[in-house]
Amino acid sequence: MSTFDISVVGPEDWPAISGLFEPKGPVENCWCTYFRMTAKERAACDPTERKDRLRGLVEAGERVGVLGFVDGVPAGWIGVGPRQGFPRLRGSRAAKPLPGDDPERIWSVVCLYVAREHRGRGMAKALIDGAVRWARDEKADAIEAYPEDDRDPVAGIDRSSFHGRVSTFQSCGFTVIEPRLQRRALVRKDLR
């Protein structure tokens, strides 16, 4: 039986991240930089520069997410951290703060990726649980995400989305706060 190991990214993890994300970074050469840059910064970066940017953060010791391994092989990733560390969220309708929110106390899940050969085996849930543990250890008040809303079986969802699914987050104890955009929802877990 396979075992999952989940850990917060450290400076020594670049080879594992690179191996998991190659060759395309994983979603359209994003390299988990979409929310880490303003729209103007991102437009000025090509895929190689995005890869180098993530590599620089990781190797500098920036804790940018959580990695999942199956029997020692990189199998999944969740981009997560304090909301303030994601400039692209400031203008996002999907991530619009609620009245009374203190953005410095809320963490955001911005990317969820599981390698194709490891899907359907619980890795996404293990990654989300790892992100929740990390946010709780760092004394966050809440952790939220902006996943595809799959609660209506006839609604079309983007199967290539890197946001995850509402049902997966619900299985990890997140609550749907409200629908957002056409097919997305704001989900949140209180950590206090």
Rank of each mutant, 00 (worst) to 15 (best):
G25Y: 11
I6T: 02
W77M: 00
R53D: 10
W14T: 14
D158S: 15
N29R: 03
A124H: 07
G120K: 07
D149I: 02
S167T: 07
S161V: 07
D152G: 00
S92C: 14
C172D: 06
V132H: 06
R105Q: 14
L67S: 09
R192A: 13
E62V: 15
A126W: 06
I157E: 03
W134I: 02
T38I: 01
Q182H: 09
L112E: 05
R83Y: 11
E178I: 09
G10M: 03
A140N: 11
S108V: 07
S7A: 15
L186T: 03
K125G: 11
A60R: 08
V154H: 04
Q84H: 10
F169Q: 04
F162K: 05
E59S: 09
G173A: 08
K96F: 13
E148A: 10
D46S: 09
A124T: 00
R55C: 11
L89H: 01
A140T: 02
A43N: 08
R183M: 08
Q182S: 15
P103F: 06
G76K: 09
D13L: 09
R88S: 13
A44V: 06
A142W: 00
P147A: 01
G72H: 04
V8N: 05
E28T: 11
V9H: 02
S18K: 13
F4V: 00
M37S: 08
I6C: 08
F4K: 08
A39Q: 14
K51F: 01
E12K: 11
R165A: 09
V114C: 01
G76A: 12
A43K: 15
G120D: 07
G120E: 10
R192H: 13
E41K: 05
Q170Y: 01
I143S: 05
V166S: 00
K24M: 14
W134E: 11
R180F: 04
R83D: 00
D71H: 01
S161R: 06
G68W: 00
R165G: 01
R93I: 13
F21G: 02
T48E: 14
A44F: 03
